[in-house]
Design a protein around this nucleic acid. Structure first.
Lengths: 141, 141
DNA sequence: TAGCGAATGTTGTTGCCCATAGCAATCGGC
DNA sequence: GCCGATTGCTATGGGCAACAACATTCGCTA
């Protein structure tokens, strides 16, 4: 074996995320959605009136980077923003946004099924908890 | 639970890769190396005289994107390129490059130990094979 | 041996994602 | 009423990857 990299989980993690990300991005592109936008739609639907800042914290996207993201969703007529008070704005899906959210969810769930099918059965149930432990303060650490 | 995302392995994969990638990038930055450069060093050491194109195929980096990567390694005095024939060039580590490779390997292995320590023991052994199955044509597919 | 398709290294451009610094306005607690 | 914290935003840059295009060279074949 002349590949010293495949024994590193960190390297495999990066490669796997790249492959999976590219695949999902391609499918979401047919809805003219990016991954970050799709996840924003799902999260807004689950948390109506959420603040832009709060949404950014949940997605781990900085406030500054939320601006173009929300602008694109707004321009596409998928979300509405209205002032909660003088400095915060509440986010809501429009009817069109909720329709789009449904389509995105279909795409994502189909993708996830195919993704998980690629991992051998004996490892399958371990993948999600292992991954979650890597980025959430989840832990039994 | 108001987070519909954490049940998706694909989403967790992306988040985990981001966290791990940022962490590793920060450590490698102290050697003035990027992740792609560090992996190139390891691979060149294991495959002397490898071609730029072949290296790109192994790392899944397009030929075009190898150019600035190799240029930076070359400018830093870490690799040497010499013509194999009129169109291909063989890559080799310089002595300095091999020293750097050693340091990078130390950093990476230390990082990997800490990374894998974050996942609960019962899932630990499943992570690498599961991830590898996701991006390698490894498969029983 | 001449020719032609494939491979190689390269340039240039684009896009996504993330990070930082800074700013004006507003909120909230003392 | 004041001041620190928060919010939304602008501007800028870096890392990484994708694509198209190009000149040169290789290798097979007719």
């Amino acid at each position: 074996m002349d590949d010293p990299l495949i024994r590193f989980p960190g390297y495999s993690l990066r490669r796997a995320a790249n492959v999976a990300g590219a695949e999902l991005a391609g499918r979401l592109a047919q809805l003219d959605l990016r991954q970050s936008e799709a996840s924003a739609l799902l999260l807004i639907a689950e948390n109506p009136e959420i603040t832009a800042s709060a949404l950014g914290r949940k997605l781990d996207i900085q406030r500054a980077n939320m601006v173009p993201l929300l602008k694109r969703l707004d321009d596409a007529g998928l979300i509405e923003r209205h002032a909660i008070d003088g400095k915060s704005q509440g986010l809501m899906l429009t009817a069109q946004g909720d329709t789009m959210r449904g389509k995105a969810l279909d795409v994502i769930e189909q993708f996830e099924v195919e993704l998980i099918a690629r991992v051998p059965a004996e490892h399958r149930s371990h993948l999600l908890p292992a991954l979650n432990a890597l980025w959430q303060g989840d832990g039994t650490d």
